[in-house]
Design a protein around this nucleic acid. Structure first.
Ligand code: SF4
Length: 488
RNA sequence: GGCGGC
DNA sequence: GCCGCCAACATA
């Protein structure tokens, strides 16, 4: 059996599980394993952990995040690595560090960080001890002095009164200075979001009973640093241990998040449906709809939509495959190659004068040859669609976001369009389902601050940025702000 | 879609 | 019939 070690000097004294990295049941995994680990162990442990993370993901994507579901999940996960035994802790640490290496590439980090932080959160919530975790890991939480506390006490009481019932139960009633910590604003974003903290001078005053999100926030930061470091180690490790290469290869194939997180500037074809639904401007959503039903698009529609797709990060091979797969449903492969493939490559700067053409702006789109043929689908729907069609599309889009004020929003959008304010209508639609977050950073502010949409890709980018800003909250179990209309 | 070449 | 090359810019 082939023994290998991640760290070069191997030390084994009195059994591996007495090593410092295996002492605490829960940690930020700051210490890498230093004992001998067999290939089989690497494989078994890391695949078991990957299974755990995938379970967490699948629960989350199916929306099973209630207290009961979370508890069930936590119980299930406890059976994978038994953290109350030294060997279970060893397996936990080894598997974590193996996956760090496998998920260290920049475009694979987010998924791993999210799942690992969910895992730690579950473990601490069900069966863990936050206070003990903080102590045993030497985490520093800045205490509040007696005199400072005196000035905050009444405000803290007010905050406590607003807590959810469950949280309120956790905070002991006569508040004392040692029941509160002073935390940098950024580390308490989820609590700020839920208005569970008192804000003063750029700091958040957090009830110690509710410190979990702060821990998770620090964990995410530490983990991101660790992944950065791990990515530097990967080449060395793969050089000295070729056996690990195939393990990493296998682990990569198991990455479930790879094709749904549009990261690293390129976008996977598989995520197109999802992206269209959540972030395409109306014109592009419309063109995509035509592609999905008719599998063809006339020339200017291809230009408008194709360049937009390039702009959001569809690669040339994917673009060729995308158009080909649709067009060949209504024509031969040969016809597609002869008449359309060249133009797609040309738009990507791979033919002729090799210019990387930029996607059309709104004014370019508004200014194109008007669609005359009955099957011309290009242009701006706010101008080209009949009032009935437009209302239908806008309604469909806003209904899926189920807003309290959908009626008014639809009316606002369609009446702007009727007055020929197409780009204003477009922006009103963007805003309708994207209320300004009260606390979290306003992703998409670039667009919100402008009066009108000026570019379809700007619409898309701002929509994605908005989503991403909210994601920060959701990663630590926060609330979506669509439900955040509580004006108080 | 237009222009151009054979 | 075969093929290559190009491209828009007011919309408060
Ligand atoms: S305003 Fe611009 S982005 Fe919006 S639908 Fe019209 S062309 Fe597309």
């Amino acid at each position: 059996m082939q023994h290998i070690s991640v760290n070069s000097p191997t030390l084994v004294a009195g059994g591996a599980s007495s090593l410092p990295e295996y002492q605490r049941p829960l940690s930020f995994y700051g210490l890498a394993p230093s004992d001998d680990i067999t290939i089989e162990e690497f494989e078994n442990f890391s695949f078991q952990r990957l299974e755990m993370l995938r379970k967490i993901e699948s629960k989350a994507t199916r929306g099973l995040t209630s207290e009961e579901e979370s508890k069930k999940l936590a119980d299930e996960l406890r059976n994978v690595f038994n953290l109350s035994t030294p060997e279970g802790r060893r397996q936990d640490v080894i598997s974590h560090h193996t996956l760090r290496l496998a998920f260290s590439a920049p475009d694979r980090r987010s998924w791993f960080v999210k799942m690992e932080s969910d895992l730690l959160s579950l473990r601490l919530r069900f069966g863990g001890d936050v206070k003990q975790f903080i102590e045993s890991n030497g985490m520093h939480m800045e205490p509040v002095s007696r005199s400072n506390f005196a000035t905050l006490a009444s405000d803290l009481d007010a905050v406590r009164a607003q807590l959810s019932a469950a949280d309120q139960k956790m905070v002991r009633v006569p508040l004392t200075p040692d029941a509160v910590s002073k935390v940098p604003f950024a580390e308490a974003s989820e609590l700020v979001w839920k208005r569970s903290v008192l804000l003063r001078d750029g700091y958040a005053y957090v009830f110690n009973a509710l410190l979990l999100p702060v821990i998770i926030s620090r964990y995410r930061l530490a983990l991101r640093r660790g992944l950065q470091a791990a990515s530097n180690q990967v080449p060395t490790i793969q050089d000295s241990h070729t056996q690990l290469g195939s393990l990493f290869g296998a682990l990569q194939k198991y990455d479930p998040g790879a094709n749904y997180e549009p990261s690293g500037g390129t976008v996977d074809l598989a995520s197109l449906d999802m992206l269209a639904k959540r972030s395409f401007p109306l014109c592009m959503r419309y063109l995509k709809g035509v592609m999905d039903t008719d599998h063809k698009l006339k020339h200017w529609g291809r230009q408008q939509y194709g360049l937009f797709l390039k702009g959001i990060g569809i690669t040339l091979p994917d673009a060729l495959q995308y158009w080909q797969s649709h067009f060949t449903r209504v024509m031969s492969d040969k016809d597609f190659d002869r008449n359309y493939a060249y133009n797609i490559r040309y738009n990507y700067g791979k033919e002729g004068k090799r210019t990387d053409w930029s996607p059309y702006s709104c004014s370019a789109i508004l200014n194109m040859q008007p669609p005359v043929a009955s099957d011309d689908r290009h242009g701006c729907p706010f101008r080209e669609l009949s009032a009935t069609q437009l209302t239908g599309m806008v309604t469909a889009e806003l209904e899926s976001a189920n807003l309290p004020d959908a009626k008014e929003r639809i009316e606002e959008v369609t009446s702007l369009a009727a007055r020929n304010h197409y780009q204003l209508a477009c922006k009103a639609l963007w805003e309708a389902s994207r209320p300004v977050p009260t606390h979290s950073p306003d992703g998409g502010a670039e667009l919100r601050e402008k009066p009108a949409v000026t570019h379809p890709n700007e619409y898309f980018d701002a929509a994605e940025a908005y989503r991403k800003a909210l994601e920060v909250e959701r990663e630590v179990g926060g609330v979506m702000p669509v439900a955040v209309d509580e004006t108080m």
